[in-house]
Amino acid sequence: MKIFLVVFAVLFLISTPGWAVLGEYENSVPSDQQRMHAQLRQVAGQGYTVSQLRSTNGQEVREYVSPAGLVFGVAWQGPTMPDLRQLLGSYFPQLQQAAQSPRRRRGGPLVVKNKDFILVSGGHMRSFHGFAYVPSLLPANVPAEVVK
């Protein structure tokens, strides 16, 4: 059993080179850390934990994880936009659809309020920040506002 688990973990590390991904089980924080050349800090919240990755080039990503290990929210800040394709995983197409629809709103923040996917991306050059979460994946008694 022990051997099986180790093999399992190694496979995960090999197959998930990116961030922990929204809506999936957290299994790649160590490789995120390596990829970002980041310092990792894990903080316990009430009914969830936050893995905070901070790289030396100023990028910061926070991953909000349920007691079962599910990533229910992500947040970011830094001088550039983060890699949202990796961070959002299967939710990225919802961002693309919202971001690429023609609109009169220009040059400001992007707010996506879909049925089960919320995203806010704001700021300006050198100061980008935002968050995304999946309402149906929020752990019991954890309000959406913790993701920020």
């Binding site: 923040p109 309020k113 704001g122 700021g123 959406a144 506002e145």
Partner: peptide
């Protein structure tokens, strides 16, 4: 005017 986020998680006013 338009929204900058979902309160109370938003952390800025963008004065356009």
């Amino acid at each position: 005017g338009g929204d900058s986020g979902t309160s109370p998680s938003t952390d800025y006013v963008d004065y356009g």
